[in-house]
Design a protein around this nucleic acid. Structure first.
Length: 419
RNA sequence: GGAAGGAUGGCUGAGCGGUUGAAAGCACCGGUCUUGAAAACCGGCAAAGGGGCAACUCUUUCCUGGGUUCGAAUCCCAGUCCUUCCGCCA
């Protein structure tokens, strides 16, 4: 959420920066609503003051006058809150401003590669896709899932179910034991305020699965990522500075409608309505966001290093970043069957953008109240890690070698082969 | 599902129709003292918004939304959440 004062004082610059995010902005409408709003506030306050004074005098002869003012106030307050609402809806739908060092560009073509790591395995046979491998092993069943649930769901059976669980456990252990994150098992549903806080609402309501509870109940949504719940830990809080940084990790199912991706990645595990993800969230003093972003990204790549999977790290361009981010690194893992890198993690600094929405603050060393910095990153997407392991570790006969580091998590199994 | 109690500043907690934005304590910040620290003492310390170059000033806010009243943290109604007890289910 942006501060209207900043926009007012610097509207041309603000407009340009929002435009770099591929977002249309009606700057004139914003400024007009803002000035209308302030005029109404002024009217309101004048009347309120008058009323207050009358009640202070306790002069009975003035009481009827006070009643008249109340009536006038009613309509002004109504107008003002209408104008304010309109303004808020527009403002809350504007994305975060990118940091200066973020490459400018309108889509993923302007993303920049930072590093490439690991050796790409040269197969002496044609590598299969993970879904071919999975279905041949009879441990991955898309047909059954479409019968019970619909498209973009899957059954993982037997050793692949175990592998999924192992991946998740290995990642969490690494983050808690080496990277200094605290493990959390959070709710998988979030209310409106929580969804608003991290930026899913109001703009992206169509991407969310809403859960119907009782008829009159407040709205609830399945979380599209644990970021939503974990970041809102500090919503409406004034955090003590010596509690910072807060670093938490959770492995949760994530639910996404994938509304805009019909026909995209329809086969396999890459794009599902439901998938597990190990999520990292850091909450820090707002001037430490950039350092924390590097640290978080390193926490994520450590997983790939340990799994010995080839990957690259890229920085997203202004047009390709998510709504709440000021800077984002994507980590992409090598997928042999597609002969390309695919996103397996996205680490973002949101600066104070989410904190302003959440009213999440701390007192700095000068005892001044500040908005917190929030960051989130996948560490990593479990389903896609499963894909990467299956494809990179496949053998000619269609079995899967288990990466050394995961074996303790799989009862020391070293290979998944057909039963 | 039934019964009772509660929600006040960063935290604990008073107030229960009129200088109450709100006592007190803790925490925090500044200072005195000290070689340094602690203790003690002194002072400061809510947020959001409007106006002003600024000093400053005004308005709103005691869970949320309505209502009563000239005036509400305080009274009434509805809702949300929490606690305890009973029932039911995992």
């Amino acid at each position: 959420m942006h501060n209207i004062k900043d926009i007012r004082n610097n509207s041309d610059n603000f407009k340009e920066q929002i435009k770099s995010r591929n977002v249309d902005i009606k700057i004139n409408e914003i400024l007009e609503l803002d000035s209308k709003n302030r005029n109404l506030i002024h009217e309101k306050e004048t009347l309120e003051k008058e009323k207050k004074n009358i009640s202070k005098t306790r002069d009975k002869s003035l009481f009827s006058k006070s009643k008249e003012i109340s009536a006038k106030l009613d309509t002004i307050i109504k107008n003002q809150s209408e104008v304010k609402n309109k303004l808020d809806i527009i403002l809350s739908s504007l994305p975060n401003i990118p940091l200066n060092d973020v490459p400018k560009g309108k889509d993923e073509k302007s993303n920049k590669e930072i590093i490439k790591k690991g050796n790409i395995n040269e197969f002496n046979f044609k590598p299969k896709s993970h879904y071919e491998l999975g279905e041949n092993l009879q441990m991955m069943d898309f047909d059954l899932a479409s019968k019970t649930s619909g498209s973009r769901f899957v059954f993982l059976n037997d050793k692949l179910a175990l592998l999924e669980r192992a991946i998740s456990n290995f990642m969490i252990d690494t983050h808690t034991q080496i990277n200094g994150y605290k493990e959390i098992s959070p709710p998988l549903m979030a209310n409106e305020a929580t969804m608003y806080g991290t930026g899913q609402l109001p703009k992206f309501e169509n991407d969310q699965f809403e859960v119907k509870l009782d008829v009159d109940d407040s709205r609830k949504f399945l979380i599209p990522t644990a970021e939503v719940i974990l970041t809102n830990i500090v919503r409406e809080k004034l955090v003590n500075i010596n509690e910072l940084p807060i670093r938490v990790v959770a492995s949760t199912p994530c639910f996404r409608k994938e509304a805009g991706s019909y026909g995209k990645d329809t086969k396999g595990l890459i794009r599902q309505h439901q998938f597990y993800k190990v999520e990292l969230v850091s909450i820090v003093e707002n001037d430490k966001c950039l350092d924390e972003l590097e640290r978080m990204t390193n926490s994520a790549t450590l997983i790939l290093d340990k799994l010995n999977l080839p990957y690259r790290k890229i920085v997203l361009s202004t047009g390709d970043m998510g709504f709440s981010a000021e800077k984002t690194y994507d980590i992409e893992v090598w997928i042999p069957s597609e002969k390309k890198y695919r996103e397996i993690s996205s680490c973002s600094s949101c600066g104070t953008f989410q904190a302003k929405r959440m009213k999440a603050r701390y007192k700095d060393k000068k005892n001044e109240t500040q908005f917190l910095g929030t960051l989130n990153g996948s560490g990593l997407a479990v389903g896609r890690a499963l894909v990467a392991i299956m494809e990179n570790y496949q053998t000619q006969d269609g079995s899967i070698i288990i990466p050394e580091i995961l074996r303790p998590y799989m009862n020391n199994l070293d290979k998944i082969e057909k039963n």
